[in-house]
Simulated scan of single mutants.
Amino acid sequence: MTEFGLIEQISKMFATIPANGFEGIGDDCAVLPIGDEESLVFTADMLAEGVHFLRRATSPEELGRKSLAVNLSDVASMGARPVATLLSLAIPRDLPQGWIERFMEGYRDLSTQHGVALIGGDTTASDSGLIVNVTAIGRTQSQHLKRRSDARPGDLIAVSGPLGESGAGLRDILNGQYDTPLAHIHRNPTPQVAEGIWLGSRPEVRAMMDISDGIASDLRHIMERSGVGAEVEIRQIPTSVDIETAATAGEDYQLLLTIAPTKADTLLKEFEACFHKPLIPIGRITAGNRLEWLDHGTPLDVEWQGFRHY
């Protein structure tokens, strides 16, 4: 069973239980309206040693920052401002003295950068490696929320930065090359928090999510939720690595969004003026149900898939 097959099965098991005001499974965060104009968003991510990181290839400070960064990315992708987190740790007995303190220093540094409070959590022992679980909470105007289900045919598809470098960095790490520039990028993701909040305030931005499993998977999530197709011009994908890695590798934590076509030029110019970097168009949403990869407008006979958790 795939990850999303399991999620769908679990969702059906709980479908008869009242949602108590929550808008649940299907986006990067669950949503809870508070009052008439504001909403809270909630997300959780788990990092398991040997699956999401190698302790020998990652400093405690890096892992602390990354554990928080991947959750802040989910909140930002909804157009929300992160405000608080809960942190739970399953700690193996072989951790060196001071390792957890250094992990917490990294977690605190990124928390301080974004003004995010640590409000609770849990600790326990582990006989199977270090496990980190973070729950993040965000807050925004309800009208600023961005969902995967709002893409429309004709929308421009754009990304907020280069793709594939983290995946190439993971490849370096698995090959024992821990100190390459790409390995550093993999261990030190930058959540697009300010960009997500800004894009959330723009009504011409329709669907949005973060890129954690590669656009070959993540764009399909938008397609499925919105009932649309998509075409991507591979020569427009921003990357310093090979195109297949850029399309399929995970953990970039850039933003993937669709933009109403009549307002796209203005949005692109204002984004660059605000953040001093471009928002990069890579394709368009179509009325079909397929994801097509184009090379100078010519369809490619490829079936690229993004990262699969199991």
Rank of each mutant, 00 (worst) to 15 (best):
I100F: 00
D109H: 08
R93T: 04
K66W: 03
H114I: 01
F53L: 06
T58Y: 08
E101S: 13
D109V: 09
R102A: 15
P96I: 09
N71Y: 00
V83I: 15
I91S: 05
H114M: 09
D109N: 12
L89Y: 02
T112E: 14
I91K: 05
M104G: 08
F53K: 01
L110T: 13
I100K: 10
R65H: 11
R108D: 13
L86N: 07
L86E: 13
S67H: 05
L110R: 07
S77W: 05
Y107H: 15
R102C: 04
E49L: 03
P82W: 03
V75Y: 11
S88Q: 12
S111P: 13
L95Y: 04
A80G: 04
E105Y: 01
Y107V: 01
P60W: 05
N71A: 02
R56L: 09
W99P: 02
V75M: 09
G98T: 08
P82K: 00
P82M: 06
D74F: 01
S67L: 08
A80N: 05
P82G: 02
A76C: 06
A80R: 04
R55W: 01
E101D: 13
R108L: 12
W99I: 07
L89V: 09
V83L: 10
E62W: 03
G98I: 09
M104C: 12
M104L: 15
V83C: 10
L54M: 14
E49F: 06
Q97G: 11
D74M: 00
V83Q: 03
Q113V: 10
P92K: 01
V70W: 02
R65L: 11
A80W: 08
G64R: 02
A76W: 06
M78E: 10
D74Q: 09
L86T: 14
G79A: 03
R56M: 11
A57W: 00
H114R: 00
Y107A: 15
K66T: 12
A90L: 11
A84R: 04
R102Q: 15
